[in-house]
């Protein structure tokens, strides 16, 4: 079935390329449909008469704020509660039993990297709440980080629709950890107090976020281009404290680039960061996108296309 698309056809490739260059993410073959569905509501919210008008304004004025909003909208993932539960359960059953004797009495900070609308961060907080008797005298804090977006706003609000709340969330968790407000379900205060959300460009220098005991980055790596995978993993290596953990999705691994991490025996998707500082050797043949320059390049490319059409 073919969808009716409203946007000037030259813009689809330009937006796909902009997303690849700014965020390192390839939108895939159905990008035209994705662009239409994700950006139509953004164009209304931003006060444009049409999607066409918003995209024309983006490439004419080169507003970086608008570019970030557009790319963030295109990157919003349709996340469910307890996606890939098998890997999430490893926090309680594998990582915390190893970390707890060392961090007992202090604070354990867990980062949900690329948190989208917050389901993963709240799932971690709910799991920690259930397991609190196993790990007494310790404070847990969950930090969700992602590009500034409406998804991140929704994460902060902790409010989920009737449909979102039922996707993946067991009914006992729903009635224990959420309050019903009109048609929506809102995360209860004691869980929300365990979680905070921050904005960050996931391919930027991430030092300002601090370092964490566990960094959770699941099932997102394959969406990034090869150079962007290198950048994002290099960024993650700075976010994990020495002798602390990186958790990937159940079927994910770091392949040949380890960035100072070693996989746990029998748990190939859990990595512990080595204590010693490791010199990262990069392949000089891999092109590294630079945010501002690549955005300018995308603008120039679109101008070339427009000139050709004129």
């Amino acid at each position: 079935m073919s969808a009716v698309l409203s946007l000037n056809p030259t813009y689809y490739e330009a937006l796909k390329r902009l997303t690849l260059e700014l965020a390192g993410v390839n939108l895939g073959s159905d990008h035209a449909f994705l662009i239409e569905t994700r950006l139509s509501s953004l164009s209304r919210k931003e006060g444009f008469k049409s999607l066409d008008e918003m995209v024309e304004e983006l490439f004419k004025s080169g507003q970086s704020n608008l570019a970030v909003k557009i790319v963030s909208s295109l990157l919003e993932r349709d996340t469910h509660f307890y996606t890939d539960r098998e890997s999430l359960d490893k926090i309680e059953n594998v990582i915390l039993p190893a970390l707890y004797p060392i961090r007992k009495g202090g604070k354990i900070q867990i980062l949900s990297f690329g948190c989208s609308s917050g389901q993963e961060a709240y799932c971690i907080a709910m799991a920690l709440d259930k397991a609190k008797d196993k790990f007494p005298d310790t404070t847990f804090e969950v930090i969700g980080v992602d590009y500034p977006s409406t998804a991140l706003d929704r994460a902060r609000a902790g409010r989920y629709t009737h449909f979102e709340a039922q996707r993946g969330l067991p009914i006992r968790d729903l009635i224990t950890y959420f309050d019903r407000q009109a048609e929506d379900w809102v995360v209860k205060d004691h869980i929300r107090k365990m979680v905070r959300f921050e904005e960050a460009h996931l391919l930027s220098k991430l030092d300002t976020l601090g370092q964490f005991d566990i960094v959770v980055f699941r099932n997102a790596l394959p969406h990034y281009s090869s150079p962007a995978q290198v950048r994002v993993l290099r960024g993650l290596s700075t976010l994990v404290k020495p002798l602390s953990y990186l958790l990937l999705g159940t079927h994910e691994t770091l392949n040949h680039i380890n960035f100072g991490f070693d996989p746990l025996p029998k748990e190939p998707h859990i990595f512990i960061r080595r204590e010693a500082k490791v010199q990262i050797i990069e392949d000089p043949n891999i092109k590294k996108p630079s945010d501002r320059k690549t955005f300018e390049k995308a603008k120039r490319r679109l101008k070339d296309i427009s000139d050709m059409r004129a």
Binding site: F163, Q166, G168, P170, I171, R172
Partner: peptide, 29 residues
Amino acid sequence: KISQALDAGADEYVMKPFDSDIIESKFYQ
């Protein structure tokens, strides 16, 4: 009401309206 259903022995609970994702997710749970 949901608690009443669980106390009576229900294993999961779907609130209408539902879609295939919700049914699949609840049957998985």
